[in-house]
C-alpha cells in the first residue's frame, strides 16, 4: 500500500488526514494522485496541479520526505510502502 498524508489547507479541504491506495508495478506520483482523487469525493487535484497538470508552486509534494522537484517531478517512481505528503506551507510572518 501507498500512504498519502494531507496537511494544512489540503487536509481541511478533503476533511481527512491520510488515506492509502494499493500499489501496482510502474506506479508514479501522477498515477497515485489519480488513484487518490478517484477515492476521495472532494475534488482536490486542482490545488496541487495547474491546468496543464504540472505541480503548482504553493503546495509541496514529498515522497519519503523528499520534495518531488528534487526527484523526477510527477514522474517520480513510487515503490510499495512509500509515503507521500501534500503540504501547502504558510509563507507569511
Amino acid at each position: 500500500m501507498i500512504k498519502i498524508q494531507f496537511f494544512s489547507l489540503v487536509r481541511l479541504l478533503i476533511k481527512q488526514e491520510a488515506t492509502e491506495v494499493p500499489w501496482v508495478e510502474g506506479e508514479t506520483v501522477q498515477s497515485v494522485l489519480d488513484k487518490t482523487q478517484a477515492q476521495i469525493a472532494t475534488p482536490f487535484l486542482h490545488k496541487l496541479l495547474n491546468e496543464e497538470g504540472v505541480a503548482h508552486t504553493g503546495t509541496i509534494i514529498l515522497v519519503n520526505r523528499k520534495n518531488i522537484l528534487h526527484l523526477n517531478g510527477l514522474k517520480t517512481p513510487i515503490a510499495d510502502d512509500d509515503v507521500l505528503a501534500f503540504f501547502p506551507p504558510g509563507a507569511g510572518g
Binding site: H56, T57, G58, I60, N67, H70
Partner: peptide, 15 residues
C-alpha cells in the same frame, strides 16, 4: 530543497 516550489503567493497574505 524541502520548500522547493513554495514560491510567494500573489497578493497580500492574510495574517
Amino acid at each position: 530543497e524541502v520548500f522547493a516550489g513554495a514560491v510567494q503567493p500573489q497578493g497580500t497574505i492574510p495574517v
